[in-house]
Design a protein around this nucleic acid. Structure first.
Length: 489
RNA sequence: GGCCCCUUGGUCAAGCGGUUAAGACACCUCCCUUUCACGGAGGUAACAGGGGUUCGAGUCCCCUAGGGGUCACCA
């Protein structure tokens, strides 16, 4: 890239930051950083009705959490601002005035009802729906008459037909359309520019060099090219990324509940941001090698549009889980603890503030489960056994408990725990206590550990026994051993 | 329906004329292990179909089929 790179992510503040948007932002960001360019964040709020207050902030928070930082934007300023459409109305008005004056655009007084009727008739006749051009050549008198009626008006771009509109997409190669002479609306009746007009003006004025977005925008590109042309501006480079699809292979819609698709949901479930970032980067892009674990810095070094996939990618939550688990295993214990505590608090298994003993307890709890968690929220179901009574034994467990040596093992272990006292009841000492049971009873291996595990938890499976015993606490351990022994009488 | 894009295992994907068609997730088997998990070793599984071009095609071209996107005063 010989020239400077300026790219942007321009979401409309109509909802949450979802994985598709985050991925688009990430690719754009990686491209900017790789080429030492600027990454701009712009808010595309031209649809007044659909704007959601606070949505922009959620985008900021989500992107910041992921580590996708921008160089210019509404919140941090920049030389090319304002960075929100509704703050750029003067700019749009001036440019619209220019198009009108040069007769490259014209006022259209057709009502939405008339247009809908027109469209329905065309479709019924088997034709392609397109604007009839009703207001294309109004005389000054006709226009004055409409104005006098107080009709609403939009502005349409005067387009040609039969012209080839071709561009070279950095991801997909050559794409071309033939212009159809469908004069599309560039200014709505409420005076707001449409998306297509606003993006072109903003991208040009902000000196965006590469327009990056999802594949769903390919068909907008010829329209935007016509706007560039009407202004006499150079067209930037384009790169259209593949779509992220749900399990049915369809484009993700915000209503789709088959999948967790909002970044905030993953954050709330206690996923690690670097795992999300890594996973998103691999969705539609690959380094071309067998590696797949990448830090942000490594992604910046390796990313290129040439290696972005053309076909859609189905979002596989299981692989994301695997990747998060990978990062969990490598993460510092304290970091995972901090992620797990809120989950346990939400489940009312921990108080709002923890005392020293509770901190120690959680630490051991997390040590026991860290490498099997896919996300911090998993800590809740994994800790069920510490918050419930011993469940009914299944057949296999009963079988184990009917062994002849069980009685001796449990009794010996109870004695060990009792004589060890509070002071001897530590995670570190647990192994020695069980060892003592072994030498006392001569039982070892499964015959030694299983009865203890089953007596204490009611299950044959579970986390490390020593830690489990300690987490249960001395009182509960003694009680359960006694219960189990009593049940065997 | 028009226009546009896409098509390698269930999923993510390597491959850019000559390979036994990688790797990862998931699944299965075995090993490790007091259990689970982790880890390790294996395994099942793919070039949508048909024509060309070529000595040779997953790779290039055409057609068909399928999938998707888009056809707004939404972005």
């Amino acid at each position: 890239m010989s020239t400077k790179v300026r790219v942007r992510y321009a979401p409309s503040p109509t909802g949450h930051l979802h994985i598709g948007g985050a991925r688009t932002a990430l690719f754009t960001y990686l491209f900017a950083r790789k080429h030492g360019g600027q990454f701009i964040l712009r808010i595309e709020d031209t649809d007044l009705d659909r704007n959601v207050s606070g949505a922009a902030e959620e985008f900021y928070n989500g992107l910041r959490w992921l580590g996708v930082e921008w160089d210019e934007g509404e919140d941090i300023g920049g030389k090319y601002g304002p960075y929100r459409c509704t703050d750029r109305m003067d700019i749009y008005r001036e440019h619209i005035g220019q198009l009108l004056k040069e007769d490259r655009a014209y006022y259209c007084y057709c009502s939405e009802e008339d247009l809908a009727k027109e469209r329905d008739a065309q479709i019924a006749a088997g034709e392609t729906a397109k604007y009839s051009g009703h207001c294309r050549h109004l005389t000054p008198e006709q226009r004055a008459a409409y104005e006098a009626e107080g009709r609403g008006r939009t502005v349409r771009l005067r387009t040609s037909s039969g012209e080839t509109l071709a561009f070279n997409d950095m991801v997909r190669g050559g794409i071309s359309f033939e212009s159809d002479g469908n004069d599309f609306v560039i200014v709505k009746s409420n005076g707001m520019p449409t998306y297509n007009l606003a993006v072109v003006i903003d991208d040009h004025l902000m000196e965006i060099t590469h327009v990056t977005r999802g594949e769903e925008h390919i068909s907008n590109t010829p329209r935007q090219m016509q706007i560039y042309r009407a202004f006499g501006w150079d067209v930037p480079e384009f790169a259209h990324f593949n779509l992220i699809l749900n399990e049915e292979g369809k484009k993700l819609s915000k209503r789709d509940e088959s999948i967790l698709q909002f970044i905030s949901q993953y954050r709330d479930l206690g996923y690690l941001e670097e795992a999300i970032l890594n996973f998103l980067a691999l969705l539609g892009w690959s380094p071309g090698t067998e590696e797949e674990i990448f830090s942000k810095q490594e992604l910046i070094e390796r990313f290129s549009f040439e290696r972005v996939n053309k076909s859609g990618s189905i979002f596989d939550q299981r692989k994301l889980s695997w990747m998060n688990n990978h990062y969990f295993k490598k993460a510092e214990l304290d970091r995972i603890v901090r992620l797990c505590v809120p989950q346990l608090q939400q489940a009312s298994r921990l108080p709002a503030t923890l005392d020293e003993a509770q901190e120690a307890w959680v630490n051991v709890l997390v040590i026991l489960h860290q490498e099997k968690m896919n996300s911090a929220s998993d800590i809740v179901p994994l800790t069920d056994l510490f918050f419930a009574d011993v469940p009914e034994l299944d057949e296999e467990s009963k079988q184990v408990m009917s062994e002849a040596t069980v009685q001796a093992v449990l009794a010996a272990f109870r004695n060990q725990v009792e004589s060890a006292g509070e002071a001897g009841f530590t995670v570190e000492n647990m192994k020695a206590l069980i060892k003592a049971v072994q030498s006392e009873t001569g039982v070892k291996g499964k015959g030694l550990f299983m009865p203890i595990r089953i007596a204490l938890t009611g299950q044959m499976h579970g986390p490390d026994l020593n830690g489990t015993i300690w987490l249960l606490g001395r009182e509960r351990v003694l009680k359960r051993l006694s219960d189990s022994l009593a049940a065997r009488q």
